[in-house]
Nucleic acid binder design. Structure first.
Lengths: 356, 356
DNA sequence: TTGAAAGCGCTAACAG
DNA sequence: CTGTTAGCGCTTTCAA
């Protein structure tokens, strides 16, 4: 009497979707052949392939990428961390990223940090749990924990890219690829633009967001350049909240700056600048005659103001596309991601015209 | 002589990251206990938990969510499909989504369709491969293939939500939850707003994007309401490309409309309206005196124009937050996602003032 | 050109 | 409170 012990079949906890196995059964082959059909189609006989194709259609099979990823150890997930997805300045970057990833078989896993470094670390930890094949973070300022996570990831061959910044430290090890531009240089160019137009008493109105390091750095560059030229320069921190209203609020500070008659101001962003511009128009202060204004961001708003706002155009979408291309290349070649400095442009419009 | 056949250890293809096993070894327990430590901490003894905690810190372990998901059959991925992430109108929705998902253990998988229904289907198919626990798509117009995929997903218990629309068909089966608002109603309200101000010859300037069904529907509502009131109404399709320039281009068409002296126009979006507004100002056409203008979207730009642009404020961020809440609830309760109509507001500013 | 066996990292079910 | 066993859906050797 053979002791056949019927092992109690454990309850299946399937997800309802057809699996490789279902396709294989219909096509009368084994699972591996179907798997191969997807990965190396030309290793599968013509008629077998035809049967499989038929079976896929019949079952409505869609391969489970998680299982595939787990088994292969290769990841097709690109995880990105952005301060605020809704901010126009980043929205186009994300769109660029999504476009760059489209039809490459890679997917975009996205999270926002709300400009908080602590949240960035927490979110990064969560994203790392999905075993992404690439990591994209914004800026080069992070908590120690974030840096450790990024370094560990990079050590296991995962490309890490910092976007929206480019300030490589010569000879500093353990850095990540940077795709963006140098904010200090932009700040210097902004100051130079105003100095060129004869201004000697300048102001920089900084972002009210404490963690907007890039805006602060532009301010530092601005101040350095102005000082080097012997100009007077003050820095104002805008209020938090609606940037436009914050700009309006900054107007008085600019007009009443102690001991200095400010004739030109640069801003952390166009919204701030437009707020001041509107306020100036309403108060009868001539722009650029009495006060020249220079924004940052090149949003549609500024271009339509009268006088039109001079500004700096950052490579918003390009950053996203370049980051996608960089991580894709790095994942394909197994080499580290490459930094790249992307071009920006100072767009001179009426708000900084010298001819009144 | 015992026949110990050393089974040739297959090459490990680990990913470098520590696993449950590594933590277990350090903590001197088995993997399952560590697993339990994460999922049901109070079923683990105090000192065991302490050892595990220590081991996690020591190894830098981060759980592999893909493996967890595969094993448990539960998915914590929310996949969303958006026409264009960079468009300001959707950017805030995504931010709302990301915020709503933050710290819930769920992750946002995002793709953009570029307003193409074919691309939507392709992208959806790709996203479905990641076995998401919820699906969010934009609008209620899809290819047949998209609908089938969504239906199959819903049939297996995955909540499906259509955002940015709300037009439930009474008694139509196989529909999905809708979170947004009714565009036809908005269109009617826009017409009513202008009719109220005594206009009898209206125009609607539609989006140049052929697949922007929501803009078209607002147009239909607009026309219906205007006709019902006995007003004359024409529809213009804006050019594709930069919406602002398209608006400028539409100005001539509005002024030279055959056989009708248009006194008020509504637009598919604020940018279009602002383009016309700028052109009108430059050509010396009084707004709202000779031409009243009504936008849609409530972007900062319109609020700052002079005259300030009347517009409709859609619940941009609210849609994202509500969608996140809806799918989260549905995933938790195993019940279908609930539709909801979100409030919008017609904001009357100077561009439609009746007192010149 | 196809298949068998082993295993990716984790969890469910069922003991103990 | 902790462990054993089986298996999620797929891919990777290796063998035929």
């Amino acid at each position: 009497m053979p002791e056949i012990i019927a092992t109690p079949k454990r309850q299946r906890r399937s997800h309802g979707r057809p699996t490789l196995h279902d396709v294989a059964r219909v096509a009368q082959v084994t699972r591996i052949t179907v798997s191969r059909f997807f990965r190396e189609p030309n290793l599968v006989a013509q008629d077998t392939a035809a049967r499989i194709r038929e079976a896929i259609l019949q079952t409505g099979y869609v391969p489970n990428r998680q299982a595939g990823q787990l088994a292969s150890g290769r990841s097709q997930i690109v995880a990105a961390l952005i301060p605020n997805i809704g901010h126009s300045i980043f929205a186009e970057t994300i769109q660029g990223l999504a476009e760059g990833l489209r039809d490459t078989g890679h997917e975009l896993l996205l999270a926002s940090t709300g400009y908080s470094m602590e949240r960035e670390e927490a979110q990064l930890r969560a994203l790392v749990g999905w075993a992404p094949g690439a990591l994209i973070v914004t800026g080069r300022h992070h908590t120690a924990g974030t840096c450790r996570l990024l370094q560990e990831a990079q050590a296991t061959g995962i490309p890490v890219v910092e976007i929206w910044d480019h300030a490589p430290q010569p000879g500093a090890p353990g850095e990540f690829a940077q795709i963006g531009f140098n904010h200090e240089a932009v700040g210097r160019a902004m100051a130079a633009h105003l100095l060129d137009r004869g201004h000697t008493s300048l102001a920089y109105v900084d972002s009210g967001v404490a963690e907007d390091y890039r805006a602060h750095e532009r301010g530092e560059g601005f101040v350095a350049q102005a000082r080097a030229a012997g100009a007077r320069v003050t820095v104002h921190r805008a209020a938090t909240g609606d940037a436009f209203d914050a700009g309006r609020g900054a107007f008085d500070a600019l007009r009443n700056a102690a001991g200095a008659h400010i004739t030109a101001a640069a801003f952390a962003n166009d919204h701030l600048a437009c707020g001041v511009l509107m306020q100036a128009l309403e108060q009868g202060v001539a722009v650029p005659g009495e006060l020249a204004l220079l924004g940052f961001g090149d949003f549609p708003l500024g271009r339509q103001m009268r006088p039109a706002l001079s500004t700096v155009r950052p490579p918003r979408a390009e950053i996203g596309r370049a980051a996608a291309a960089a991580v894709l290349l790095s994942m394909a070649t197994q080499e580290g991601a490459q930094s790249s400095a992307l071009p920006w442009a100072l767009i001179s419009r009426q708000s900084t015209d010298v001819s009144r």
